[in-house]
Design a protein around this nucleic acid. Structure first.
Lengths: 246, 246
DNA sequence: CGGATGCTTGAGGTCTATCAAAGCGAGTGG
DNA sequence: CCACTCGCTTTGATAGACCTCAAGCATCCG
């Protein structure tokens, strides 16, 4: 069972802003957006929720249906069942959609936990529909955000279901690097926010296996690692691990 | 690599219908729908695509963004990469959304293949937006359809990542039974449309392991099985396999 | 009817989990 | 500020689950 999270801490809510002022706009809204559309987006009232490290996002506003997007920070989404097993489903970075399940089986529960101080942007579906009245492109973009979520899961399932441990770890490093890169960070110098346990769960392995595989990569000169700072030394080598085996 | 699919066969397109006439309406549209909303749904122009057994759904209409829902039949969705590995992501039954990935990595490809003659209902997102102008409930329902897709994948990832082979197979049988039941079929008498290979891929196992596990279940009196007809004899027993271990 | 595909079972090997123990680091309280 | 704790990390030894390879049989389809 997941260790106790500090549920007590307050979750201050910032003042309400229009999306047009948000620095994420290039990722969160479509690239082809025009000035007119941008002014529509201004009308998209978004609420920003601060989530301190270790806190969980509560499904408070579940009923009224919000689309939630990570603005800053790093989080993990976890599904757990009553007998104490849990599985990390995803790691969330800025511009990722946050999917809070609504009607889960009562034997399972779903959590989103901040691995560092984070800010979540929430947009009510109602408002999206209002904008959709005036602009179809913008509307289908928000569908697209959900499609990206589905796609990410498809790849995760591919990895979980068909890869061996070495391939999984290599895939994880490369994927994380790509996503960091998309957020303006280095693709090769990765700063882990998550524990080895989290990585193992995400990949469907045990943490010892993850550690042993990383150690193997170090000995083979593929990576450098100390604490939670990882440096990819041989990008091609890692890619070949995934693609060239069998 | 997935065996050759008959890509040549024609995919006749039926005459255009409004959703209000569709027998799936109770599943596909929200349960709280009113007569007024129903008449809006009538205006939702849907195109029905016939997909013969063995055929693949082509991403022909990708660009213009369609929401696709299975009306009748049974299909599988598969992701495969260039070195010949593939992974069954999901099995699709009536009322399930069909997610055709748009921008996949060029090293991967994505297929939806009919395991029996099927009919797919396609609704352009544009039209959904039009209806959304008039009714917010209906609009958020279509978001909800995508959310259900995400949820299904969350559970699959839980199974792929944290279960042992026996649990996976039990989970698969129970889940399939539940979904059959939701479509008006028996929860206990399952008629497999997919091969043992498909099941194995879906669960991240080898087909021999699936067969051995099923054989074990037979010897333990949990199920009866011949060919692709499976009968669940001890529902509780299967449920306990998943929940009570450890 | 014959070939191809799918299903089943066995034997043996490999990979990953399990169990155990020690080192390290961040955070806490004295 | 230091000692202490607790959780995270790492490595080793062992066990067991699942895969791999192989062979025979059943079934489907042209």
């Amino acid at each position: 069972m997941y260790k106790e999270i500090n549920k007590e801490r307050s979750k201050p809510i910032e003042k309400i802003n229009g999306c047009g002022k948000c620095s994420l706009i290039k990722k969160c809204l479509p690239s082809f957006i025009t000035t007119e559309q941008l002014s529509l987006a201004e009308g998209l009232i978004s609420q920003k929720i601060k989530v301190p490290r270790g806190d969980e996002i509560k499904p408070i506003d579940q009923g009224s249906q919000f689309l939630k997007i990570v603005q800053t920070g790093f989080l993990k989404s976890v599904i757990s069942n009553k007998d104490g097993r849990d599985q990390v489903l995803d790691f969330l970075m800025p511009s990722d959609a946050v999917h809070l399940s609504k009607d889960l089986d009562h034997r399972y529960s779903f959590h989103i936990i901040a691995l560092e101080d984070s800010v979540i942007c929430t947009v009510p579906f109602d408002k999206i529909a209002d904008v959709a009245i005036l602009d179809h492109d913008l509307s289908s973009h928000f569908y697209e955000v959900l499609n990206i979520e589905i796609n990410r899961r498809n790849f995760s399932m591919f990895s979980l279901g068909s890869m061996k441990s070495e391939e999984k770890v290599a895939y994880f490093l490369l994927d994380l690097g790509t996503r960091f890169h998309q957020n303006g960070f280095s693709q090769l110098n990765l700063n882990f926010k998550m524990s080895r346990y989290d990585i193992a769960s995400y990949l469907g392995l045990k943490h010892e296996t993850v550690i042993r595989t990383l150690s193997k990569f170090i000995h083979e000169g593929l990576i450098e690692l100390n604490h939670r700072e990882l440096k990819i030394l041989n990008l091609l080598g890692l890619q070949q691990l995934i693609n060239n085996i069998h």
